[in-house]
Structures are given as C-alpha cells and as structure tokens.
Design a protein around this nucleic acid. Sequence first.
DNA 1: TTGCGTTCCGAAACCGGTTTCGGTTAGCGT
DNA 2: ACGCTAACCGAAACCGGTTTCGGAACGCAA
Lengths: 356, 356
Amino acid sequence: MPDKPVNLKSLAAHLGLTVGTVSRAMNDYADISVATRQRVQKAAAELGYRPNQNARRLSLGQPETVCYLMPRQTGVTIQPFVAQLLQGLGEALGRRNWDLLVHHAESSQDDLERIDRLVRTGRVGGVVISRPLKNDPRVQLLKDLGCPFVVHGRTAEFADYAWYDVDGEDALVTAVNHLVDLGHRRIAYVGAPLQHQFAQERLNGYNRAVLHNGLTSDPQLIQIANFSDDGGEMAASILLDLPEPPTGIVCVSDTVAFGVLAGIRARGMQPGQDVSVIGYDGLHFGIHANPPLTTMAQPQAHAGRRLGDMLLAIVDGGDPKAHQELQRAHLVRRKTDGPPLQGAVQDNVSEREDIQ
Amino acid sequence: MPDKPVNLKSLAAHLGLTVGTVSRAMNDYADISVATRQRVQKAAAELGYRPNQNARRLSLGQPETVCYLMPRQTGVTIQPFVAQLLQGLGEALGRRNWDLLVHHAESSQDDLERIDRLVRTGRVGGVVISRPLKNDPRVQLLKDLGCPFVVHGRTAEFADYAWYDVDGEDALVTAVNHLVDLGHRRIAYVGAPLQHQFAQERLNGYNRAVLHNGLTSDPQLIQIANFSDDGGEMAASILLDLPEPPTGIVCVSDTVAFGVLAGIRARGMQPGQDVSVIGYDGLHFGIHANPPLTTMAQPQAHAGRRLGDMLLAIVDGGDPKAHQELQRAHLVRRKTDGPPLQGAVQDNVSEREDIQ
DNA sequence: TTGCGTTCCGAAACCGGTTTCGGTTAGCGT
DNA sequence: ACGCTAACCGAAACCGGTTTCGGAACGCAA
C-alpha cells in the first residue's frame, strides 16, 4: 500500500522545526546553521522526503518543463530521428531536473492552440519545434508569447531566434559536386513540397551547384514529390521517362531516395551503375537498402543535447540570437554512386570502390 | 512583449466577484446562477483567462500527467515504434487534457530512481513502460508505489497488472509453420538475449512449432545474438557455416533480419531463393530491403491509443487486471520466403509469388 | 408580520512548497 | 554591566487555483 507521502509539514514536525526553516535548510540557505542543515538533510534522506513538484513550481513561478512538438508525419513514413532527439533533449534537461513534455498536433492551427495553452497555463517554460515552415506561425506566436524556444531547423528569416540546423544547401552542393566529379553532367533533384524551409534550402543547394558547375539547368530535372518513398518512386519514374533521362539523382531525404531506388529497379536498371543516387539524412538503415544508399549524413547524434542546452541558456536569460548553430553534413559513400554509364562523359572519371 | 497573465484574482476583480465564485462558475457548479455563470465564462473568454495548471494540479492533488519511459536502444539501432507510440499515447491522453512526459534512463537502476522520483514528487499520475524484462523491477516498484501503470509488452508473470501486447509466441509459430508449408525442414532461429520477456516468448514459439511439426531440434540452429543488425549478420554467418546449414531462418525482429539478409548475401547467396528469412515487426522499411523482407507485422498503429485509454481507465479506479489486451501479428509476404532450394524437400511445395 | 426553506455568493481553509521579514539569542568588545 | 552586531530560526505572506461552510437575500406560506 502506498503510505502517505512525507511532506514539508510532517518533516518539520518530526524535527521540531517550522516548514520555512526546513525548506531553507534543504535549499542550502546561508542563514541556517551547518548543524541544523545537516540534521534536516539527514532526516529528509531517512524519511525519503521528496518535495512536491507542483507546489514547488507553482511557488517558483517556473514550470521547469519544456515541450517538444513532434512533426506531423506524412502517411506511413515515421520520423526516424524523433526518438534520438528526445533522448538527447531529455539528457540535457535532466541535468537541471527539468522535464520533457511531448505533444503532437493534428493541424497547423492545432499546433498554435497547443502552444498557446501550454505557455499561457504556465505548463511549460520553453518549447522546441522541428522542421519549421518557411514562414512558420509557431515561431511568431512564441515570440509574441515571450516564451523561450529553440528551433530544430530554420525558417526563411532566422536572424532573431535560436536554432540548430544542418546546412542543407551546402550538403546538396556537396552531393552534386560529387556526382560531377564522377563524370555526371545531367543530374536531377527529387525534392519535397517547398512550404518547408529545409526543402527550399536543399533545392537552392542543387540549383547553386548546377549553376556553378555549368550543368544543363532543365526544369524537368527538378521533381517536387511527396515526402515519402512513394513520392520518390513516382518521381524516379517520371525522370526515367524523360527523352534525355538523368544519369544521377540527388534526393531531399533518404526515405525519398529509397523510393527512387525502387523506381530505378522497377525499370530493370541498377542503381549505382545505370543511375547514381544520393540521399540525405544518413539513416543507419541505408546500409540495408538495395543497393546500400550513398547519402549525406547529418551529425544528429547530439542535436537533442545541443537544443536542450541552448534552451536552458535562454531560460537563464541568454540572448536567443547568440544561440545559433549550423552543422555540416558529410558524404557517406556506399553503393549507389558511380560514374555515368553511357553518353557524353567528361574525361575526369575518378576511380571508385567496387560495385556490389 | 508578454502582457501579464490574467489569473483568477484579476478576473474576479474585473467582474466584482470573489475568486471562489469565479472558480465555481468556470467549473459549472450548480450553486451558481445561470446568469452569473454565463457572465463569468464570457469575460473569461474575452480576457483569455487560462487557469494555471500547476496551481490547479496542486490543489486537485492530481498531476494529470503520465510518463512514458523510452526503452534503451542498443547501439545505433533506433526504436522505430517510439514516435508512433508517443503519438497514440498523446492522442488518448489529450482527450482528457492530460500531458505526456518522456524519460530515458541510462541504466536499470536509473529507471527505478526516475520512476520513484516522478511519482513520489507528485509529478505524474501514471506510467507507461515498454519491453519489460522477464522479471522487471519496474513493475514491482510501480505496484509498491500504488501508481497506475500499463505495460507495453509483458513480464513472465502478467496476471495482476494492465498490459497491451502482441502474441510473439503465436507469431513465431505462424512464421515457422509458413516455412514448413513451403517445404522447409531445417529451420533456424536468430533471437535476442533472453532477459527480455519478448525474446523468450518468441523463442518459445519457435520451439513449440519445431516440436509440433516434428522438425529436427538442433541447439545449433538457435542463435542468440545481439539485438541489432550486426548481431543478425554474425548469427547468419555462424548458421551458414554449419555442416548442415538451415534452409530457413526466422528472426526475433526486422532489424536482426536485415543483418541476416546481409550475412546471406555476403556468402554470395540469395535470400528468398537459397535461404528463406522471416522477420518480425512489419517495419515499413522492409519493402526497401534487399530483397524486400517477409515479416510478421504487428498491428501497432493504435497501440499507443489503447495504452493511453487503459491507463486513464485505471486512474479512474478501474481494475488493472481488467485491462489486458493481446493482439496477433500477421504474416506479410514479400520476397524473402520461398521453397527450399535443394535437399529432401517434402511434396507439398506450395505455389508462391514471382521472385524479383 | 413572522417563520422557514432556497438560491446564490462571500469568506476562508487548503494544497505544499518558497521567500521575506523580524525578533530572539549569543558572542563580543569596552 | 551594557550595547552592538551577527547568527539563527519562527511567523507569515505568497504562488493560483479548488472546495467547504455559512450567511444574506429572497420568495412563499401560515
């Protein structure tokens, strides 16, 4: 049976002190004698005293809790990074005994209502959001509410708040450059709808690299697909039906790339030999794809930790603008990249690993 | 700028009433006149009054919050179901305006300390845990604390608490039976360490099916590997080195099965033709494996919802023993199952889909 | 007019902590 | 012996709600 919990009052009575004195002793106030403090803390440990957090936080006026808003997932595609991010966030917050709440909204409007409720009811003292839109109403609301927040990703205007992001534009430049180095000249991009800022950034990277390398800038080579494997497969089908199909395809994500691989195989072609494919995310699972997927890997192991640390720093009064961190993705070569098979190939065909 | 929040006191002053009256009007007490109630609720809506949750929950003595303890992930392998489960849990809890906390412990001892702290500090009114051990100290602790809880999975003794589980024993019987129907007689099992109850259950299912079908019960055919793709690959390597290697392999999970596929391919063999493989989980990603993985799929779309509903029912005074739900997995045939290639094959070789 | 029962709201205790303020005691110097 | 200061703790306000209790005002019947 659950014996009645020991609270400050009962602990104070047990010690022959008042609640105020016991509270200060527990919190290491200077105006409590060392003897009393030790006596109190010893008794608290023996009786298993645990301060009630609701009472404490009400009194402090600080909920000591942050909320992570899970991104809406499209269809069956789960967000593989959520679990990892939550773990990192929890770790960072746990060091200060802060708690982590998760919420999942049905719609954009629902998102806003949840945020409003959570901060206006004093439920949370900070918010973390992922994958913002170009002009995300959530960041505007959070600014208006004056609630500390950090963004996992960026909006179109990202100067005046805290964020942690991976440079998707740079990553796609790297990916395209890599294919160019292998000899490709006709390179396509399979992207996601552009309301999300990350989709725009990666497209920008593709366009920049196409321009910089003097490649043919054919609008047909840019396919905006559903952000899923099915979307990727459909886009690949369209691209391969082109009168002059691409020899290389860079993708907005690994999930989309998996669909592209399927679309290529459905044509009886071999990804990595007939058509090169580069994904984005660095999902571990990519090594089991058919064939193993070459990808731009994000260093997202400690994204959660960094976001949590930033948020706590802002809660402590830090300037949000001082907490902006841009990481770089790096190329992980597996088996879906190789020199182009046919056509007018340039001279600089670099060596590459054996193809499975 | 964040204007100062409107609380009960300011709302009451605005209306010329006392806080007690306003509170009761907001909560639809019968001793408040209809006119007053409407006047209060109208003003509350106009001023955007939001009751402080910390204060409310302190007064109620009910934190209206539950905690989900994330399972520890082994190595790089993420838990793909976590995001989906959280979404379902949040949905169920959200209908009653309960909040969802997540925690991740470093060790088993850490797990216990977190649970103890969360319930003893009045932080949560319920707990959800996943993947219990055979004799999981967490459920004993939760019982001792008298805290409502539900288990995603089961322990060895599961009679006296609430749980939601998929019948892993039944699923492995189905998987083995399927291979037997295809003509296999020498079937191996790649499992996970047996401290987890689910690992034991699935092994029991394998053993039961082997016995029931009169197959050779060779201890060498049972490989207990790390719960990861690497573990699966290593186990496959051992199995294929056997003087009499298996023609079919059933696995404790899809992740392990992916490793098994890799191990088979590393031998120059073709999964689904030379060796059949059946996974467990029904991960969507399996369709992108090489070749697409046949698997026992769990109906885990609404697991979170069910767990949340159960927990709320128990908080309301329901009997935990009355909330136990066992779901069944079903076979999803893709491309890694087929009739055995060589050897003494039985006569009942059933037809099957074309192999890619 | 008196008496009684409703209806409706104010007053106050309470949840369990934190923090400010003030007073008692002891120690010290002269 | 006296005064002053510093050390230490008690008393009470406060955080923002919920809930119990009692009393005022009112209507109705005798």
